[in-house]
Design a protein around this nucleic acid. Structure first.
Length: 567
DNA sequence: GCCGTTTTCGGCCCGACTGTTTTCAGTCG
């Protein structure tokens, strides 16, 4: 049995145990064992002694060995015999955990969401100790809600909601400081909810104001330091607001940025020093609480460098601290190499795009409008492209502080041919090849198209290599590891498309590209000057894959970039 | 269930909120 399946089985065992109302530490021991396997880069065959791994003991080790040798786990089979599988989905109902579900099953033989619904409707549930009429109503409401609310919301859907909330918070005068936190701040592709930290001297007023100004469908909780609501926005989503005093702000921001695993690791570090981390500060052995000016000061207190939110993930970041200074940052970015103008489907003129890039302090940039094939995007014919090249070069005369390059985002056609002949391509400084059509072709055909582009000596880069839209469509399903091999062999750039719709390539592939030393360009693909800001999310997304400055084409000097594209 | 150069037993990250309670259990992040 492969490693992934074994990891999932351990997690499944934990779920079943949860439903039995098992000891929470026993349950987390199985989750921990799954995580230990996951974090270990080796394959199962390469691990000669599973039991030597910290976190895997006799019981979890036995399960792993069962799965390796007999393809099944006796423990899981036993659990599945005692716990009906219909209980699993009940864990999705907010307010219900393992213990309550176990009780419902034991006392009322409720073994599915449907059975639970009926028992609530016939008021059987309120007869149980620990349950009452209010709980019954809440369960019914949550069951009804279960289908309507998506489990995760994509980062590009969250962005406008976060903007809206930030505008509201700016208008509440009693709020001194605020920041989005949670997985959004860590640039996860999708999140379950939105978290905000608010620093204020008047928590009561802020709480009232929040409830007044936010578009609220439902108040989930409204305590002294925490307001939880469901927001009335296009795709309804929950938002948590944590209200703290200013001296607690840095600790609260750190705590609610997470991840959970990162926090647990930090707390273990503190505990070894006899200290206790909470969202309010660090409690010393004598009971006094240490506060921090910033997250940086918080980490420094534990002799750690500042760990950016983007890499606060599974805990493995603590073993890679020496790499932090090499990570790409927005300050390292010297140019943007994929953007559109009114010549095709962009909103601004070439000159307006240049001015916007100058304002960002870039030293060079590439204009890359669509090519002939993409009629819906007003793609440029050969003649228009040649005229555009001239226009760009003429415009260059106006500027000494930024160098303009003429490029194209050229389509790779469904039959695998390229939209421009070589004699046109060789007049361009920078050629991007992209797939925008016939996504459903078999992988073999898609790869043939990509190979035709990669092997063309005039092509410099493949844009948005998989064509995915986060949480919405998978793209054209190329064999990315092979694509990375080809890029390495032919010396081509792969793009990390920074538009939050795409973030393509995704992290796992970026890591592969890094291992293969394939250069990555982070590009905004801007169709409007406002979209040039996506460089920021692109860079932070790249940090999640631990991409170093030198592997990012946008950090190269103008001279190095010129050398690369002229070769 | 797992762990240990202060521990082989007694901890395991820590606190807020709700709903059920008369001091707390369960859930959540």
């Amino acid at each position: 049995m492969d490693k992934k399946t074994i990891i999932r089985t351990l997690e499944k065992i934990a779920l079943y145990m949860e439903l039995q109302g098992e000891n929470p530490f026993k349950i987390s021991a199985f989750r921990k064992a799954a995580q230990v396997l996951e974090l270990d880069a080796r394959s199962l065959a390469e691990m000669d002694n599973i039991l030597s791994l910290k976190g895997i003991g006799t019981a979890t080790g036995a399960v792993i060995e069962d799965l390796m040798n007999k393809e099944q786990s006796n423990l899981l089979l036993e659990l599945q015999n005692t716990v009906p599988s219909g209980l699993l989905p009940m864990l999705k109902i907010p307010g219900l955990g393992g213990k309550k579900i176990a009780k419902l099953y034991k006392e009322l033989q409720i073994d599915s969401i449907d059975a639970l619904k009926e028992a609530c409707e016939t008021k059987k549930v309120q007869s149980l100790a620990g349950f009452a009429a209010k709980t019954e109503e809440k369960i019914l409401a949550e069951i009804a809600n279960l289908q309507s609310k998506p489990e995760r919301t994509a980062v590009w859907q969250l962005e406008p909601i976060v903007d809206m909330i930030e505008r509201k918070l700016l208008n509440i005068p009693t709020i001194e400081k605020f920041s989005v936190a949670g997985s959004y701040r860590r640039v996860k592709e999708a999140s379950k909810d939105i978290d905000f930290i608010i620093g204020t001297n008047s928590p009561q007023e802020v709480r009232e104001e929040l409830l007044n100004v936010l578009p609220i469908i439902k108040i989930i909780a409204a305590g002294d330091t925490k307001v939880s609501v469901t927001l009335a926005v296009e795709n309804e989503i929950d938002a948590d607001f944590r209200i703290v005093e200013l001296h607690q702000y840095a600790s609260a921001l750190n705590h609610f940025t997470g991840s959970k695993d990162h926090n647990i690791k930090m707390r273990q570090i503190a505990k070894d020093l006899g200290k206790k981390i909470s969202e309010y500060g660090v409690e010393l052995e004598d009971g006094t609480v240490q506060h921090f000016e910033s997250e940086k000061a918080f980490y420094a207190y534990f002799d750690l460098p500042y760990i950016p939110p983007t890499v606060r993930e599974d805990g493995s970041e603590f073993s890679k601290l020496d790499q932090l200074p090499s990570l790409v940052t927005l300050d390292d970015i010297k140019g943007d190499f994929h953007m559109h103008t009114t010549w095709s489907d962009g909103a601004h003129s070439i000159e307006e795009m240049v001015e916007a890039c100058r304002a960002k302090g870039y030293s060079h940039m590439v204009i890359t409008d669509h090519s002939d094939y993409l009629k819906v995007a007003n793609g440029l014919s050969k003649e228009r492209l040649l005229r555009q090249i001239e226009t760009i070069y003429e415009l260059q005369a106006k500027y000494t502080d930024i160098e303009l390059f003429a490029g194209s985002e050229m389509d790779i056609l469904p039959d695998g041919s390229l939209d421009f002949e070589d004699e046109v391509l060789q007049q361009l400084d920078f050629v991007i090849a992209s797939i925008h059509s016939s996504f459903s072709q078999p992988q073999e055909k898609i790869m043939e198209r990509l190979f035709n582009a990669i092997k063309n000596p005039h092509v410099h880069m493949i844009a948005h290599p998989t064509g995915r839209i986060i949480e919405q469509r998978d793209g054209y399903n190329p064999d990315v590891p092979t694509l990375i091999e080809w890029a390495k062999e032919y010396g081509k750039i792969l793009e990390l498309n920074a538009n939050p719709y795409r973030l393509d390539l995704k992290t796992d592939y970026l890591k592969l590209a890094k291992e293969a030393s394939v250069p990555i360009a982070i590009n905004t693909d801007a169709h409007h000057i406002d979209q040039l800001k996506y460089m920021d999310i692109g860079v932070r997304y790249a940090q999640k894959a631990w991409l170093h400055k030198e592997s990012i084409v946008n950090t190269w000097t103008l001279e190095k970039f010129k050398q690369f594209i002229k070769k």
